[in-house]
Amino acid sequence: MTEIAYAVEEHVAVITLAAPERRNALSVQMAGELTEAALTAEADPTVGAVVVTGGPHFCAGAARNVLADTGADPTEDRNYRNLGAVYDAFTRLGGIGLPTVAAVRGAAVGAGLNLALATDLRVVSRTARLLPGFAQIGIHPGGGHFTLLNRTAGREAAAAMGLFGEEVDGERAVQLGLAWAAYDDVSVEPEAIALARRVARDPALARRLVASFRHQTGPGGLPWAAAVELERAPQMWSLRRKHGASAAD
């Protein structure tokens, strides 16, 4: 990998976007490497959580040449696939069977905001800039942008940001429910990794927890009675693991 750094420590896989010269705008290559890194983490049974970060510049969105090529000929197969690769970068990350945390410093714009919103939890810099940016450059949002905003912060925030182009900083993002906590820049990645380590120390349990979490908190949610039944099997598994005969041996 040349545009993504990947490392595992204490059961946490840290995926770092590593093209600071373009503020981590998602090229086709970076998008492919990000997808590969996410699937690598999921395939590793010793990994219990993932943190994705861009260092001082989280992600400036899709690379302009990807957008320009698609606009020049949207039906050309290569252009269609290239834009799809950018979508895959955050849809795959958001769908892996591991708890995911975004550590956001600098700007998360357009597809970069989608990437942050695709994770289960966000830790941000107080001075982070979260903005859609699509309409501001004359294009319609992509990648399910309105859905990601709505499921994270609700309809009002989705309207303010997605329709009207409002930008929010890290502290406002916490107030809106777009992020869990805001810190000074130097603390963002350490705090995100510390959160991830809490669940990652038991990778098998982490994977069952996040599956139940997503089923119950996804669009539409679940009735309480259905949630009780959904949780029964993984809870029985965890009790058997902790207190069963094999645990006593």
Rank of each mutant, 00 (worst) to 15 (best):
G142D: 01
G154Q: 09
E156R: 15
R129C: 09
L148H: 13
S187P: 03
G154L: 08
T100W: 08
L93N: 01
E171K: 11
V104F: 09
G138S: 00
A108F: 10
R198N: 06
Y87C: 12
P141A: 12
I96K: 08
G154F: 10
V174R: 02
A108Y: 00
A182G: 06
G94V: 06
R126T: 12
L121F: 03
A153R: 09
A153I: 03
T147R: 14
H140M: 14
V101R: 03
A182N: 01
A128N: 09
R151P: 01
F164I: 06
G162W: 08
D202Y: 00
G97T: 04
V123E: 07
Y183T: 00
R201K: 14
R197G: 03
A118Y: 09
L176V: 02
H140Q: 14
G170P: 08
L98M: 01
A182Q: 02
I96E: 00
L131N: 12
G154K: 08
I139N: 01
D202M: 05
G110M: 11
A157N: 02
A160C: 00
R105H: 01
T147H: 13
G94A: 07
G143C: 07
I137G: 06
V174F: 04
V188H: 11
P99N: 11
G177C: 07
I96D: 08
G165K: 09
V168M: 12
T100E: 08
V104N: 07
V186F: 07
L148I: 00
A102K: 02
D184V: 12
G106L: 02
P99S: 05
I193Y: 02
V86K: 10
W180D: 15
V186G: 06
R129E: 08
G106V: 01
R155Q: 13
G177I: 07
I139E: 11
L178S: 05
A153W: 11
L176T: 03
A173D: 04
L131E: 15
T147S: 14
F164A: 14
I96F: 02
L176M: 11
A173F: 00
A108Q: 10
D184A: 14
L115R: 11
Y87F: 14
F134C: 00
P203I: 08
A118E: 04
D202Q: 12
N150G: 08
N114C: 10
G177Q: 09
G165V: 01
G95T: 02
A196S: 04
H145E: 01
V124M: 01
V109W: 06
A200H: 01
A89N: 05
S187V: 01
A116Y: 02
G165F: 00
L117S: 06
A179M: 01
G143H: 11
A102F: 08
L195C: 05
D169F: 12
L149H: 05
A181H: 13
G165E: 04
V123I: 15
P190R: 11
A107D: 12
A181C: 05
E189S: 03
G144A: 08
V86P: 08
R155F: 13
S187E: 15
A102V: 05
R92T: 15
D185F: 05
A173K: 04
G110N: 15
G162T: 06
F146Q: 13
D169S: 08
R201E: 12
L178Q: 07
L115D: 01
A157Q: 07
D185N: 13
A159S: 13
R201D: 10
P99L: 05
P203E: 11
P141K: 10
G143K: 04
R172L: 10
Q136F: 07
G110L: 10
N150E: 15
F164P: 05
A128L: 04
